[in-house]
Design a protein around this nucleic acid. Sequence first.
DNA 1: TGAAATGTTGGGGCG
DNA 2: ACGCCCCAACATTTC
Length: 487
Amino acid sequence: MSAPSSDRRTIVWFRRALRTDDNAALLQAMHDAQSVVPLLCVSDDPSYAVLSPRRRFLQNVIASLDASLRSAGTMLHVRTGDPVSVLPAAVRAYGAVAVYAVALSDPSSIERDARIERTLKSLGVAFVRVPDRVLRGPQDVLTGARTPFRVYTPYRNAWMSGVDEIAPPVPAPGRIAPVELAEGSFELDRLGWGTPERGGAKEAHARLRTFMSGAVGTYGSSRDFPGTDGTSRMSPYLSVGAISIRRLFHAAREAAADASGAARKGIDTFVNELVWREFYYQVLVHWPHAIRGPFRPEFADIPWSRDEGVFRRWKDGTTGFPIVDAAMRQLRDEGWMHNRARMIVASFLTKDLHLHWQWGEQYFFSQLTDADLASNNGGWQWTAGTGTDASPWFRIFNPVLQGKKFDPDGTYVRRFVPELSRLPAAAIHEPWRLNRQEQEAAGCVIGRQYPAPMVDHAEARAKTLMIYRVGDHGAAAHGRRRAALFS
DNA sequence: TGAAATGTTGGGGCG
DNA sequence: ACGCCCCAACATTTC
């Protein structure tokens, strides 16, 4: 790194690290030059104005970022348009010698960044991408043969063995010298987003503190119950970088340091989930083809249904299966879904409705405030049985049993499917089993207030086993059985 | 991070 | 007392 020099002005392009706390690109820019311009590029596409939960969340995070920059003495400089043209224009307007940003690893970002780098280079300006999204980079966790891992457990063991290499988080700079707005830049206010309600970095840190001093202790068991507030709910903040992954990891380590044995187990489980996130991240870096289709090509030819009407009922949460409908409505209402519920609806889409898992992946990505390419893709491939170290394809969730097991009193269903709220707990996951009189007493007649189940699970399951078996030439057990048949 | 089908065991009712 | 049957509970296999 070069020595600090006050006459060198740089731009910090804020994208997926929307915070001042422990922001590697910001810290490096401030180390390399005293004068930094905190820059935000906003799309000028009119469809951008549609206020999905994710968009609202993002606006709040950005407002919070601007507020913390202001408390340090500076502010966001906003420009509209495509970053590929905005950044060179900003470089000229500010006379900057370098642009810093968090390094991104998905193919479309890599491709766009390469174009930006070329353009900036022609202006004599460096484009510095600083790794900041994961605790341990894809090249830092490899097998003895220096190849990437495809299986989670050995990956985790290797990851853990290098845990001391993880840097501690660095607090936000106390003071950042302000820079005058240049031609073409404006203050955040001018976007007319209104007063931010919640969702910023401050809220993320408060939530993290609460979680680490309480629920994390029972995380191992309570995280599986969607009616309980048993998860950290850090994923939306992580996905946009409103909180740093190191901040999260070190909070967990500190909590572990003064925790009882039982609580430490909960913390270990939590850290494991962070490692899953890193695992999926490195899978896509090493095998980017998984973004476009099954990681394992033997599953490329499964004859999926293309029934849009069926897909719509899944999205709308009117499948007739209470736990599925509750989950899908939570997604639409909150832009978030409990992890257990994600597994249930994903299994339902692929193995009860026989729709392509990529339809679900795409819909999740469009709705989730925590949308993350790698985790989302990894999760869907896991459910569909097409990924690295995936769930076996013949593992099929029974939506009624999952409901009974993980939402036994129906708290979750009642919260998101009000028409079922008066059903007795014993029937809430299979309301069609009540007789007409009982349905009327609960104010929920099947076919009127709430739909009949849209598929017969046993039939759907049988069909899944059939359509998957066709493509499954890879499983060792099947090979053996087939060989035995012919011997 | 599953569920269904199939197999095994053992207690209790009964003649 | 004994064998037999039934079936629930648990275990194993299969998808």
